[in-house]
Structures are given as structure tokens and as C-alpha cells.
Design a protein around this nucleic acid. Structure first.
Lengths: 165, 165
DNA sequence: CTCCGGTGGTTGAGCGTTGAACTGCTTGCG
DNA sequence: CGCAAGCAGTTCAACGCTCAACCACCGGAG
């Protein structure tokens, strides 16, 4: 919150924000609408043809890539960009489906491990082609190689700010 | 989410999808994580300091820009990228806060108009600086002019595919 | 005028998320 | 050893979203 080079009136009213100009508005709207519509579309495609939401899918993917197909709850939450509460609920529901199981953690009595079951792995393998097809159709197939490179660059730039690991 | 090569099912399925290669995976992850984190961050910033979610904010903005501060429910839903059901629920809640009112539509007895009240307008005016500051800080201030232009270009390209008006 | 398919909008149930409170375990410090 | 502080994870209540009925009204065909 250090003051900028220009002197602002150090007065009662807070400094007026820098509003978006017309060009910035258009960029902002394009980003907002396109990301929202794309997320919605991917979610719909996957859920309607497999019954697996993107949130569940992400959990299954992370577990499938983990050693022994198991991971600590909080690490799993971090990788899925989910809160602990949210992950705990989601794992409970996946447990009811028989796709994930819980194990107590040996090194730390407080910890729990989420384990991907064989049934869960099978469900993931059924969903994966649907997911990748959808991502290709609605994202990669729409963009030129230069646009894809720019998308990655922008994403990584924003990540350095939002998630400085 | 990231269907890695390790998930390829052994050729039993009809048409094997074109899996993402390593570069595409990175672009995909960067896009997915950055959009998710940015949306979360903007939502948090706005909700925590004003008590208005992005969904509500969007409704208020659209109404404030409409002639006479009123709009048909379905048009409002379209502009907010919301389902009719979702918008109906949201307007009900905004009505309880006294920020929006419903009016019957004269030209079409089936229709309803959502109207932004003075109290709602005041709430919007209080929230707007918070919102724009957050968007600047986490998006525009992080990107170069070239990146902003690319972001807009990508967004508009995707929109032509996802929402061919 | 009446019927009828289509449209605008609402409602209710079920599911998922959020944030805060809570339990149990571990770690460090005297 | 004993205790406080803090971490891992769960639970609860409130809220929001989705999907599928559902009601009311419009507009055209006979």
C-alpha cells in the first residue's frame, strides 16, 4: 500500500480506482465470457456422457498419477485447487461410489490417505477419452499454434502472481 | 483434467482420441489453473469486502446499464450467462435484499422485468471500485500490452466457436 | 372462439460448496 | 513428563446451482 509517485490527496476519501477504458473492457469481457463458456461446456460434455463432474475427474487424475495411487488429503486438495472441506466431502462421495478409499497415514496419526481403487481407475479410463476429446474440440482445435503458445504464456504469467508456489 | 498418455485404454474402444502431448498438457494446465485461481481470487476479493458475489454483481451491472434500469428476465439471464432457473433464484434473493424488484411486463403477460432499485444501485456503486481494483491488480497489472491483446484475441476466437450469437 | 404447441418464468428436491467450529494428534518447550 | 500451540481432517448449517416438472400466457390453425 505504498503511495505511488504521484501525490494523492491523503484525505478521507480513498483514491478513485483506475477504471477500465473501452479497450480494456473488451479484453476483460472476452476473457470472462470465453472462460466461463468454456468451463461450462467442458463440464457439460463430461458430466452428461460419463456422470463424472470435472471436480471428481480432477481428483481421480491426481490420484492415478500419484505413487501407489494414493495421496495425503491436504496435498490432494492443493493439487485440485480445492479447500480441505470441499475435498473431504468429495472424497466421501467418491468413497460411496467405491472409486476411492481412505487409509490412515502411518507416519502421521492425524493424516489420511486417499486411495484410488481399481473400480475408480476403470471409471477414470472410461472418462478420459471423453474429456480429452472435449478439450481438443473446444479449445485446441479452435486456436492457432501461436494462440496456444500465447495462452500458455499468459497462464504461466498469471500463475506466478496468483500461486507463487 | 490432464489425461496423460498413461490413461490410454488398450485399443478396445471405438476411436482412440488424440491425447494431449507434453506441450499441450502444459498449455492446458496453465490455462486451467490460472483461470481457476483468478476467478477464485476475484470472487474472494469482492465477496469478502462487499458481501456481493460475482454472480450478483454481474446482475446489478447488467441492470444498471439497461434503459430505465430494467430488463426482461430471459435477456438478463443470457447476458449473465446464467440459466433461467438460476437467474430466477438469484433475483429472488436480490429482491429480499431490496436491491432488485420484479415488474410484470406490459407487452407480454408472461414476461417479468427485473428492476434495479436505488438501494441496489447504491450497493453496486460501492462494490464497483473494489471489483475494478481487483481485476487490475490480478489481471491487467500482471500482463504486458501484447499479452492483453493476445488474451482478447484468444477470448474472441473462442467466443465465436462457443457462442456464435 | 377453441384448441394446441411453444415460450417465459417459477418452483422444489437433490447435490455441491463455503466458512466456521470442532476433534484428535503432534511437536516443541520448560 | 506435561502442557500449550498448532496442524490434519471432519462436520454442520447456510447458501447456491442444476435439472426436471410445472403454470400461465401467447399466437396461429381450424
Amino acid at each position: 500500500m505504498s503511495p505511488g509517485p504521484e501525490h494523492q490527496p491523503a484525505s478521507a476519501a480513498p483514491a478513485p480506482p483506475r477504471w477500465l477504458d473501452a479497450e480494456e473492457q473488451k479484453a476483460w469481457r472476452a476473457w470472462l465470457y470465453s472462460t466461463t463458456l468454456l468451463q461450462d461446456r467442458l463440464e457439460r460434455d463430461l458430466t452428461h456422457s460419463t456422470g463424472i463432474s470435472n471436480a471428481y475427474y480432477e481428483i481421480l487424475v491426481q490420484l492415478s498419477e500419484a505413487p501407489d495411487r494414493r495421496m495425503r488429503m491436504s496435498q490432494l486438495a492443493d493439487r485440485c485447487l480445492a479447500s480441505r472441506s470441499r475435498l473431504s466431502h468429495a472424497v466421501s462421495r467418491l468413497e460411496e461410489r467405491g472409486w476411492v478409499a481412505r487409509e490412515v497415514c502411518v507416519e502421521d496419526g492425524r493424516g489420511q490417505l486417499a486411495v484410488l481403487t481399481d473400480v475408480g481407475m476403470a471409471a477414470l479410463e472410461e472418462a478420459a477419452p471423453v474429456h480429452v476429446t472435449s478439450v481438443r474440440e473446444h479449445l485446441f482445435d479452435q486456436l492457432s499454434p501461436a494462440q496456444i503458445a500465447a495462452m500458455r504464456d499468459i497462464g504461466e504469467t498469471l500463475l506466478r502472481h496468483l500461486d507463487p508456489r
